[in-house]
Amino acid sequence: MRDLPLGLTAALTAAAAALTACGGGTDPEAGEMTVFAAASLTDAFEELAAEFEARHPGTEVVLNFAGSSELAAQINAGAPADVFAAADTATMGQVVEGEGLNDEWAAEHGEDGAVFATNALRIAVPADDPAGIEDLDDLAGADVSVALCADEVPCGAATAAALEAAGLDITPVTYEGDVRAVLTKVELGEVDAGLVYATDVRAAGEGVTGISFPEAEEAVNAYPIGLLADAPRPGPAADWIDLVLSQDGAAVLAEAGFGAP
């Protein structure tokens, strides 16, 4: 800076100050609030976001949907999120240990986030059900081709727990990287059956039939939500979580196929 003319230095300083000023000092209620949420929450959260924006004029809810573990990695790497809604408690645990949750909020709602919904596994079969699947035992049949989630991803962990509870050892034709991929293979009829979540069956519509089975109760996925420690907009974020936990929130989630906590 030494060689810069004095006037230019002053101008640069002023510009920098102006930029800084843009970051704060405005209406705390208005602006964007960012929610990172598991992909399975897409439909429910989009509906809730519309409701939220209607109740809080001036606040825009920015939704970022992806796999829970990818989102957790992004948050721990410093992504500017206010709220994290995970598809399982383990992934929320990664964030609790990483960036952490807002202390004040956690003291009130729980150190590991608040569980707002559950999701149970279903057997998904194509609408014409070519292999005649009726319960979990049928998946072990020699001629039945099955798609399962890979062990590495959350739905895979749930699948493993359910199969263990049933005492079944199923060799699928493929271990998919996410639950939607399992659903796609079922929808296209490439496999006779797959294990997916109730919400996925609901989202797939008429192409897929869901069959519930008792062992699914052994592997119910709890969905925790939390206000992040570094949330840029903690106020609206807390309001958002309240909406999700409210009766109105529960109704929307149930419509999408989620179970109550």
Partner: peptide, 8 residues
Amino acid sequence: ITFAGNFP
């Protein structure tokens, strides 16, 4: 992964 799936 879409067409061939994933089986070790």
